[in-house]
Simulated assay, not measured.
Amino acid sequence: MDTPRLARIGDAAIELIAREGLRGLTHRGVDREAGLPSGSTSYYARTRLALLELTIERMVELDDGYLARPVEGPHEAAEAIAAFLHHAVTDGRTRTLARYELALEATRRPELRAAYDRGGRRLREHAAAVLTKLGVAEPDAHVRTLVGWCEGIVFDALAGAGGEPSMQELAAGARSLLWTVLREP
């Protein structure tokens, strides 16, 4: 985000979406949630689409900061993946719930789809970089598997019947997945 105020607006929008769904997201509601003077949000994001795009950009920025951990080998990669997933279902739960709301909205609104897909590409770029660093022969061929596994684990923990996984469970699953990908000829 260009300014602390934009970050504050994005954070407030994430909170509102997670708590109230997209119906609860209004410019005035974001102003109240962020503790900003009335009209602040509409100054930075004139339309609802602009506010949704700003929110997605903030989520990507927050994820980028969390995903930037360098990894040296499969063990470190599994631990980093586990930490990211554990964060997504615990301290980052609000952001994850808001992301699911935005994902569904993007399936109905093509103008939002582009912003949502840009964010998804960033996650896939991080996954490809990890797989490349580990020496996977065709990292792009395995990105969907890695991202899909991560998405499934998080969705099951938040919206399914799986409950909150432990760090150990997540790391073991990530190691198993990475080991399978690394062993492939």
Rank of each mutant, 00 (worst) to 15 (best):
Ala115Leu: 03
Ala77Cys: 15
Tyr116His: 08
Leu178Ala: 08
Cys150Gly: 10
Thr94Gln: 06
Cys150Asn: 02
Lys133Glu: 14
Glu101His: 10
Thr107Phe: 12
Gly160Ser: 05
Leu112Ala: 08
Ala98Met: 03
Phe155Ala: 00
Leu112Phe: 10
Arg144Asn: 07
Gly119Met: 12
Gly152Tyr: 00
Asp117Cys: 03
Ala141His: 08
Thr90Pro: 04
Gly135Leu: 02
Met167Gln: 15
Ala137Asp: 10
Glu169Trp: 06
Thr96Phe: 02
Gly73Cys: 07
Leu102Met: 09
Leu178Gly: 04
Arg99Leu: 13
Val71Arg: 08
Glu138Ile: 01
Ala137Glu: 05
His86Cys: 03
Ile153Trp: 00
Ile81Tyr: 12
Val143Asn: 06
Thr90Leu: 13
Tyr66Cys: 00
Gly152Asp: 05
Phe84Met: 12
Gln168Glu: 11
Val89Asp: 00
Tyr100Ala: 11
Ala128Leu: 12
Leu178Asn: 02
Gly162Asn: 00
Tyr116Cys: 02
Glu169Ser: 11
Ala103Met: 13
Ala78Trp: 07
Ala127Gly: 05
Thr90Gly: 03
Arg93Ser: 14
Val71His: 12
Ala78Tyr: 14
Glu101Ala: 11
Arg144Ile: 06
Ala161Gly: 07
Thr132Ile: 04
Pro139Ser: 05
Pro165Lys: 08
Ala141Thr: 06
Gly163Glu: 07
Leu158Asp: 04
Gly152Arg: 09
Ala82Val: 13
Glu164Gln: 13
Arg108Ile: 01
Trp149Ser: 15
Gly160Arg: 07
Leu112Gly: 03
Arg118Asp: 09
Val147His: 11
Arg118His: 01
Asp91Phe: 05
Leu177Lys: 09
Arg99Gln: 14
Gly148Tyr: 05
Arg175Lys: 11
His87Gly: 13
Leu104Asn: 09
Glu169Cys: 03
Val154Leu: 09
Arg109Pro: 01
Leu102Trp: 04
Gly160Lys: 08
Tyr66Arg: 15
Val143His: 01
Val130Arg: 13
Arg99Thr: 10
Val89Gly: 02
Phe84Arg: 07
Arg95Ile: 09
Arg121Leu: 14
Asp140Gly: 04
Leu170Ser: 08
Thr90Val: 13
Gly119Asp: 05
Leu67Thr: 11
Asp117Pro: 00
Asp156Leu: 01
Arg95His: 10
Gly148Ile: 11
Ala159Ile: 02
Gly65Trp: 01
Ala78Glu: 09
Ala127Cys: 12
Gly119Cys: 03
His75Cys: 03
Val154Gln: 04
Ala115Ile: 00
Ala127Glu: 13
Thr94Ala: 13
Thr145Arg: 15
Thr96Pro: 07
Tyr66Trp: 05
Gly152Asn: 12
Leu177Trp: 03
Ala103Asp: 13
Leu158Thr: 01
Ala115Cys: 05
Leu97Ala: 09
Leu102Asp: 10
His126Tyr: 15
Arg118Val: 09
Val71Glu: 12
Thr96Met: 12
Ala172Ile: 00
Gly92Ala: 11
Pro165Thr: 10
Ser176Asn: 03
Glu138Ser: 06
Thr145Val: 09
Thr145Lys: 06
His126Cys: 03
Ala78Leu: 05
Tyr66Pro: 00
Thr132Gly: 06
Glu72Ser: 14
Ala78Lys: 01
Glu151Phe: 04
Glu164Cys: 11
Ala88Trp: 01
Glu72Thr: 14
Ser166Gly: 15
Glu169His: 07
Ala80Arg: 07
Ala103Pro: 00
Thr145Cys: 11
Glu79Lys: 10
